[in-house]
Amino acid sequence: MVQINPSILLVDDEVPFVETMAKRLAKRDLTVDTAFGGREALKKLDSGGPSTIDVVILDVKMPGMDGLETLAAIKSAHPNVEVIMLTGHATVESAIEGMKGGAYDYLMKPCEMDLLMSKVNEAVDKKRAHEAKILDARVRMHALRRES
């Protein structure tokens, strides 16, 4: 299997935050795309397809479509994509809600880059392992068909 760089979608309404964070993640050999709101993020996921983006880093508190709504939409349209929630102190409860809604993990803002990287890597591994299992299952199914 060819190991390609994990692909990340960074979603937050704070433009300077998104821009700088994107640069830092790119420097750590991640493929980074950005969105400044929930709808934009969904659009990017839809156009790119689930295979191009592995992990979404999603701010909980955003005007318009907030983090939790976005999470629900992502999980229903692209169940394989892992989501890491970013939250301020006041919205930890929403982060927990997000975990219940299928988010991989959450981090407090501002966050340690090392911690974020390790979470991203874990999430990517999980997603890829999961995809591998699906692939495996498909191969087995085809083999069974051929035998019969």
């Binding site: 704070e14 300077p16 935050f17 700088t20 964070m21 640069k23 830092r24 508190k61 301020g88 102190h89 006041a90 919205t91 803002k109 501002p110 880059m113």
Partner: peptide, 22 residues
């Protein structure tokens, strides 16, 4: 108001931390 204000302060702080990290 505190929740809103905490978030309001948290955002620039997060940006500063990121810039410093950068």
């Amino acid at each position: 108001l505190a929740a809103g204000i905490a978030h309001e302060i948290n955002n620039p702080v997060a940006i500063m931390v990121e810039e410093a990290g950068w």
